[in-house]
Simulated scan of single mutants.
Amino acid sequence: MSDREGHSGAPGTDDDLSLPKATVAKMITELLPADVTCAKETRDLVIECCVEFIHLISSEANEICEQDSKKTIAPEHIIGALRRLGFESFTEEVEEVLKDHKQQQKDREKKTTKLEQSGLTEEELFAKQQALFAESRAKYESQQQ
Rank of each mutant, 00 (worst) to 15 (best):
T112Y: 03
S2R: 01
K71E: 07
Q104F: 12
T13S: 15
H55V: 02
K40Q: 11
A25G: 05
Q67I: 00
I28M: 14
E95N: 13
D100A: 14
T113A: 05
K106S: 14
G80A: 05
T112M: 15
G6V: 00
E135A: 12
E109D: 15
L56Q: 07
A25F: 00
K70D: 09
V97Y: 14
E48M: 12
G9K: 14
L56A: 09
K114E: 06
E5K: 10
E60W: 02
K106F: 12
E135Y: 05
F53P: 01
T42S: 15
P20G: 12
E123L: 03
R108G: 04
G6S: 12
H7F: 13
T112G: 08
T113I: 04
E66S: 08
T23H: 11
H101S: 15
H55W: 00
Q145T: 10
Q130P: 00
Q104T: 05
S18G: 15
G80S: 10
I47R: 15
G12T: 14
G86T: 02
T29V: 04
D15H: 13
L19H: 07
L85G: 03
V46H: 08
D3K: 06
K114P: 02
I64A: 04
Q103H: 05
K40N: 11
D44S: 15
Q145H: 08
M27W: 09
L17H: 10
A81V: 01
E135T: 01
Q117H: 03
E116H: 06
E116C: 04
T72G: 03
E52C: 11
I28V: 15
K21R: 14
G6N: 09
I73M: 07
L115A: 14
F87T: 00
E122C: 01
V51W: 11
P75D: 03
F90C: 09
E41H: 06
S89H: 05
G80E: 09
R108S: 11
Q129G: 05
Q117M: 08
E109H: 07
E66N: 05
L31T: 09
H77Q: 08
P11S: 13
V46N: 09
S59R: 08
G86Q: 04
E95F: 02
E122V: 03
F53Q: 12
E116M: 07
L31I: 08
L32R: 11
M1C: 02
